[in-house]
């Protein structure tokens, strides 16, 4: 007799069933912070184009408790995005040299090193 039973799967809460799904969703949700932050940058450009007074008012507004909280959460989300992104690069872009594949740790390490250099440049330019 053929009467297969299909177990229900919740479309809205499936990711609560396993820790690895929660980590995946945390990774995906970082994009909302990056989306919002990019619009903040665009707003900053607008203020920059409007002149010193407008720009200073923009920086002033950043300093509100809400502004600081927002920046802090973006920072945390962005760091989580960076680590999860770099950690999987050897899977998406393996490099074969001669016969062997370059060990994943080396590819990841190179990304982290470059990340440090880029961050330093941004900080020097910005600070």
């Amino acid at each position: 007799m053929n009467k297969p039973y299909v177990r229900p799967l919740s479309k809205t809460s499936w990711f609560l069933t396993q820790p690895r799904y929660k980590r995946y969703m945390a990774r995906e949700v970082t994009c909302l912070f990056i989306f919002a932050y990019t619009f903040l940058l665009i707003m900053g450009l607008k203020r920059l184009a409007e002149g010193p007074d407008a720009f200073n008012a923009f920086v002033q507004a950043l300093g509100s408790p809400l502004g600081v909280l927002f920046n802090l959460s973006v920072l945390i989300a962005a760091v989580y995005h960076s680590t999860t992104w770099f950690n999987v690069t050897p899977q998406a872009m393996p490099i074969q040299r001669g016969e062997e594949f370059v060990p994943g740790k080396i590819i990841i390490g190179a990304h982290y090193a470059l990340w440090a250099v880029v961050s330093l440049i941004v900080l020097i330019l910005g600070v």
Partner: peptide, 26 residues
Amino acid sequence: CSFVGACSEVCPKHVDPAGALQQVKV
């Protein structure tokens, strides 16, 4: 595929299907 990566974590033969799928996307 949205690269959850669970497939590769559970593979008993240490195949990396998640990696294969990302390479196919690229």
